[in-house]
Write a protein that binds this DNA or RNA. Structure first.
Lengths: 150, 150
DNA sequence: TATTGATAGTCAATGATCGTGACTAAATTG
DNA sequence: CAATTTAGTCACGATCATTGACTATCAATA
C-alpha cells in the first residue's frame, strides 16, 4: 500500500468529488438529489433529450433511467413531454428547478477545479486534465481494441 | 457536454479500469472475484490483517467486510485464523489462491499503467500520476478543511 | 398496403449491494 | 470486580443494478 494504483485513486477522487458536490448542492437548496440522479441530470438539455439518449450517454440501462426519471419528475426537476418527431419517444425537459440544479452543479464543479488549479498552477492543471481525458479515453477503448485475446 | 468535468472523468476511468482488471482476472483463473471483493483483497497481507483494519482501510462498514469475507472464505481466497494477540479478533490470512489473485491483480494493473505510460511517455505519465495523487489527496481533505462554511 | 424487423419506453422479478440496530465475547479501564 | 470499549456477527430493510418480456410506434420493403 505504498503507492495506490490509478484505479484506487480514480475511485477515491470520484467519491470525494461526489461528496463535496452533493453536500454543497444540499446547502444550496437541492438536498434531494443524489449521485444517482446526477448521472442523468448531467446530460440534460433545455431543449429536451430522449430517455434512450440519456441511457446511452450515462452508460446505464434504460430501465434504471426510467426509475430515476420517475423520481426526478416527482421531485420537480424534469417533465416528460411528447416528442413531436416520434410518438414512441418522450422528451425529458428540465424544469426551472432542474435548470437551477444543473447551473449550480456546474458552478460547484468549476469552483472545485479552480481550487485545484490554484494549487497546481494553471498550466500544470490544464495538462493534468488533458492527460486525464486521454487516459480515460484510451482505457475505455480497451474493450474494442485488444480485449479477450485469450 | 463539450468537456466532461473531472468527476465524470474519474468515474469513467474507474469503471473502465475495473472492467479490464476483472475481465482479465477471469481469464487468468479468477472468474469469481468481483470489484466488491477487490476492495478487501487489495488490503490483504500474507501475515494476516484484522477485519476491522480491512473495514477502516477500505472505508466500508465491518458488516459488509464480514459478508465479503464469508464469500472469500467460501471461494477459497482467505481463511480466518485466531489472533494470538486478541482472542476476540480473527486474522484474515490469504490462501495460496488468494496470494495468486493479489499477485495477478497487481501485475494487470501494472501492465495497464505501462500501456498508458507508453502512450503518454514515461515522464508525462509520471507527472500525471503524481498530480492525480495530489488532486485526490487535496479533494479528500475538503471535508476536514472548509466544509460547510455556508 | 401489408409485413417484417428495429426502436422507445415500461413492467416485473431477481440478485447484488449497502446501511442500521442489536447482540455476544473479550479486552480495557478504574 | 464493575463499567466501558472493542471485535466480530446476526438480522432486517432499503437501495441499486441486471435481465427478460411486453406494448406501441417507426422504418423498410415487397
Amino acid at each position: 500500500m505504498t503507492v495506490p494504483d490509478i484505479g484506487v485513486l480514480a475511485g477515491q477522487l470520484m467519491r470525494a468529488l461526489q461528496e463535496e458536490l452533493f453536500e454543497t448542492l444540499a446547502e444550496l437548496g437541492h438536498p434531494d438529489v443524489s449521485p444517482r440522479h446526477g448521472t442523468v441530470l448531467a446530460f440534460l438539455d433545455p431543449k429536451g433529450v430522449r430517455a434512450t439518449d440519456l441511457a446511452a450517454r450515462s452508460g446505464q440501462h434504460k430501465q434504471i433511467i426510467g426509475t430515476i426519471l420517475d423520481e426526478l419528475v416527482r421531485l420537480g426537476y424534469v417533465t416528460r413531454e411528447p416528442d413531436p418527431a416520434d410518438r414512441r419517444a418522450k422528451l425529458i425537459v428540465p424544469t426551472e428547478r432542474g435548470i437551477d440544479e444543473i447551473t449550480k452543479a456546474r458552478a460547484i464543479l468549476a469552483a472545485i477545479e479552480e481550487r485545484h488549479e490554484r494549487i497546481l498552477g494553471a498550466e500544470r492543471y490544464a495538462g493534468f486534465k488533458q492527460m486525464l481525458q486521454q487516459v480515460t479515453r484510451d482505457q475505455r477503448a480497451w474493450r474494442q481494441a485488444g480485449a479477450s485475446t485469450a
